[in-house]
Amino acid sequence: MITKTLKHGLTLAFVMAFLTACTSGSNKKEVDGPVVDNTPVQQSTIDDSINLSNVVYFEFDKYDLTAESRAVLLAHADKLKGASVAVRLEGHADERGSREYNMALGEKRANAVRDFLVTQGVSGASLETVSFGEEQPAVVGSDDASWAQNRRVEIK
C-alpha cells in the first residue's frame, strides 16, 4: 500500500513538474475553477482515505482503467459499499479530436468507473454517470500536461 501511494505521489509530482515548467515557460496556463484532490500534498501518508483522490485519469482516446485508477477506486468501493449515498460519476475528455466523439469517450470512462465499482460490491442504483466530453476541462491549456489532467472521471 505504501509503495502504491508513493508511486501515485511520484506520478503526481511528475504531473506537477510538467505544470510548473509550462506555467513558467509560456505563461499560458490558467486554472479553470478550483482544482481539488490532485495535488501531491500528503499523498505519502499511510492512511490516505482522508485524502482519497476523487479523480481518476485516463490515457488518450482510451477508457480502460489504469492500475493506479483501480487502486483509487478500490478505496472508494470500500467507502461506498453499504453506504446509501448517491454518487455522480462525471466523465471528461481532453480537447483533441471530435467534440461529439469526446462526449462518448467521457461516457465510456464514466461507465468503466461505474462497472468497476459495481464489481467491487457498490450498488449500481446509487451510481449515476454523465459525460461532459471536452466541455468542462479541469485545466485550460493545449499541452500534454493539461490534456492529461482533463482526461478524467470525477467522483462526486
Binding site: F14, A17, F18, A21, C22, G25, S26, G141, S142, D143
Partner: peptide, 13 residues
C-alpha cells in the same frame, strides 16, 4: 521529465 516538459511546451507554442 523537465527535458520532456520543455519539449512539450515548445510544441504547444
Amino acid at each position: 521529465l523537465s527535458g520532456i516538459t520543455f519539449f512539450a511546451c515548445a510544441q504547444s507554442g
